[in-house]
Simulated assay, not measured.
Amino acid sequence: MKLFCFWLGDNALSDARRSALSTLKNTGLDVTFLRYDDLGRYINHSDLHPAFPLLCDAHKADYLRALFMHRFGGGYSDIKWIERSWLEEVHRLEKNSHLIASGYPEVDPLHVANNYLCQQLLGASLPARLHSYIQTTYLRRHYRDLIGNGAFIFKPGTSFTTQWWTEVNRRLDNLHDELLQNPARFPREGKGFKIHGIPSKYPVPWVYLLGSIVHPLAMRYRHQISRNLPPLTFSTDEFSSYL
């Protein structure tokens, strides 16, 4: 089974990132590290949404993990330290036909995507904002039933990945015109961010293409998801930025 990870910027990996990348082999999976020019080994660039080139590097990686998990399945990990094997979870998924994915339990309520903030930033209607407030409150209350977004294993082509892939493309359809006017200028950018003290006009809220979609789906499919994957190591400031 392959373990995909992405690095889409022109910048080189820092020493800490290279060190973390070297630990991904501890999963026991076939580590497949892809930069932008490597994507053609797996997909055609025509497979990508027309808005893809306009996204910041972090959002491009969010989009690609949806595509790769839906089309190919297997593992995904952020470039962070991994100390333990994933093979037990691989075997668990292979032996249990009702399971569609495996992840580590979400670590904190505040790590749950804030859909309410997304809807505020997008100028959504009052009913939409109220719905997202209720949803976010509920998901944060039950965060232990969710999986984190930094590493996971998915079977390809499931109802979960189909809905994930469909929704991320629908959201880019809606944002495409705004992205043409205000494409990303920095590797990490989100609607409402201040860049050098100036509010960014980039229209995509930070969690809008990943956690905002995955966390509600993880709750819906929680009985078909194992939450026994070893967690990543998050305890270093080296990974607070996409550098």
Rank of each mutant, 00 (worst) to 15 (best):
G9P: 07
I43P: 13
Y42C: 12
A151H: 09
A128F: 03
D78K: 02
R17D: 07
Y133D: 04
I153E: 01
A66C: 14
L93R: 09
E89M: 05
I79N: 00
S85K: 06
S235Q: 13
A128K: 14
P109F: 04
A184Y: 00
A151L: 01
L139S: 09
A184Q: 05
S240L: 13
Q119H: 14
T137H: 13
V207I: 12
L121W: 04
G73T: 09
F72P: 09
K155R: 15
K194E: 12
W206Q: 04
F152P: 01
T166M: 08
Q224Y: 08
P205R: 05
R129L: 10
A124D: 11
G150V: 00
L110G: 08
S212R: 03
D177L: 11
A128S: 15
K25E: 13
Y133F: 15
L232N: 02
A151Q: 13
A151D: 02
L229D: 00
R227D: 07
Y138A: 11
S14D: 07
P50V: 11
Y202T: 06
V207F: 04
S241N: 13
L180Y: 02
S241R: 14
D177F: 04
D177T: 12
L146C: 11
F239T: 06
K155N: 09
F152W: 09
S77E: 00
R35W: 08
S19Y: 13
K60Y: 07
H45C: 06
A124K: 12
F6W: 02
R185C: 08
D173H: 13
K201I: 00
R185L: 11
A66R: 03
E178P: 00
Y143A: 05
G75C: 06
I100G: 05
F152H: 06
F52W: 11
C118R: 06
H111E: 14
F33V: 07
D15I: 06
I79C: 01
Y138W: 14
K155Q: 12
Y208V: 02
F6C: 00
G157C: 08
P230Q: 02
Q181C: 10
Q120A: 04
S85Y: 01
H215E: 10
L64K: 04
L99P: 12
L172A: 10
D15E: 15
